[in-house]
Measured scan of single mutants.
Amino acid sequence: NQASVVANQLIPINVALTLVMMRSEVVTPVGIPAEDIPRLVSMQVNRAVPLGTTLMPDMVKGYA
């Protein structure tokens, strides 16, 4: 099963993503693939993302 990107903490809106904010985990439904974590660094989410939430492509500005 493919690992997805999961919030490692509350990720506020309009804050640049850092490695420490994200972890990889096998979850259902599948979200952004874990291998895209380096690409996500410095991008921003378009809504607050609670701890443990799977990041979906539509949550990250400029990802999709």
Rank of each mutant, 00 (worst) to 15 (best):
V49Q: 02
V15H: 13
P12G: 08
V60F: 05
N46H: 08
V6E: 01
P33Y: 08
N1S: 14
V30N: 11
K61L: 14
Y63V: 04
S24N: 08
M59W: 11
P38C: 07
G52W: 04
I13S: 14
T53M: 15
P38I: 09
I11P: 00
P33V: 08
Q2H: 15
A64G: 11
I32C: 04
D58E: 14
N8Q: 10
Q9H: 07
L17E: 00
S24I: 10
N14L: 05
D58V: 10
V6K: 03
P29K: 05
N1Q: 12
K61C: 06
V60I: 11
A16Q: 11
R39E: 06
R23H: 05
Q44M: 12
V15F: 09
P33K: 08
L17K: 00
A48G: 07
Q9C: 07
R39A: 12
V41G: 01
S42C: 06
I13N: 12
L40T: 00
I13E: 15
N8V: 08
V5F: 02
V20M: 12
V60Q: 01
I11F: 02
L19Y: 14
D36S: 10
T28I: 14
P50R: 09
L40M: 07
P57V: 06
S42W: 07
A48Y: 11
Q9W: 05
Q9G: 05
V26P: 07
T54V: 08
V49D: 02
V6N: 01
D58Q: 10
S4H: 01
M22V: 07
L51R: 13
N14I: 03
L55N: 00
D58R: 10
T54E: 01
D36G: 05
Y63K: 03
I11R: 02
T28A: 11
V20N: 15
L55C: 03
V5N: 02
D58S: 13
R47T: 13
A64W: 07
E35Y: 11
V30H: 14
T54R: 03
L55F: 12
D58L: 06
D58W: 13
D36W: 10
T54D: 01
N8Y: 03
G62Q: 09
M22Q: 00
P57M: 06
T54N: 00
N14R: 07
L17P: 00
L10K: 14
N46Y: 09
T54G: 02
V41S: 03
A34Q: 05
P50V: 06
G52A: 06
K61D: 13
M21C: 04
L51N: 12
A34C: 05
V30R: 15
V49S: 02
L40I: 12
T18M: 08
V26T: 11
A34S: 15
R47V: 12
Q2M: 12
R47K: 15
L10W: 13
E35N: 13
R23N: 08
P50E: 12
L51V: 12
N1R: 10
M59A: 06
S42A: 12
E25Q: 13
Q2T: 14
V45F: 03
D58I: 10
E25H: 08
G62T: 05
P38A: 13
A7D: 01
A16L: 08
R47Q: 14
S24L: 05
S24M: 09
M21K: 01
Q44D: 04
K61H: 15
M59R: 03
V6I: 14
L19P: 14
I32A: 01
P12T: 06
M22E: 01
L40F: 01
N46W: 09
L10Y: 11
A48N: 10
V26Y: 12
R39M: 14
D36I: 09
P50L: 07
A7N: 01
L17Y: 01
P33F: 10
G52L: 03
P57R: 08
V30T: 14
M21G: 00
S4G: 04
A34K: 06
M59N: 06
V27L: 04
V45E: 01
N8D: 09
N1F: 15
M59Y: 11
P12I: 03
I37A: 09
E25N: 08
Q2W: 10
T18A: 09
Q44E: 14
V49G: 01
Y63D: 03
R39G: 09
P38L: 10
I11A: 01
L40A: 00
S24K: 10
P50N: 08
Y63F: 12
E25S: 10
S24G: 15
D58K: 08
L19F: 09
G62R: 07
S42H: 12
V5P: 01
A7T: 08
L10F: 13
M21N: 07
D36V: 09
V49P: 02
A64I: 13
V26Q: 08
A64D: 15
N1Y: 14
V49C: 05
S4N: 01
E35I: 12
Y63L: 07
T18W: 03
T53E: 09
P29Y: 03
L40K: 00
A34V: 07
V20T: 13
Y63W: 13
M43Q: 11
V6W: 02
Q44A: 09
R39V: 10
I11L: 09
G31P: 00
L19G: 08
L10A: 11
I37V: 07
A16T: 08
L17F: 03
E25Y: 06
M43C: 05
P50D: 10
L40Y: 03
M43T: 04
G62K: 09
A64L: 15
I13K: 15
M43D: 03
Q44S: 11
V6H: 02
S4T: 04
N46R: 09
N1W: 09
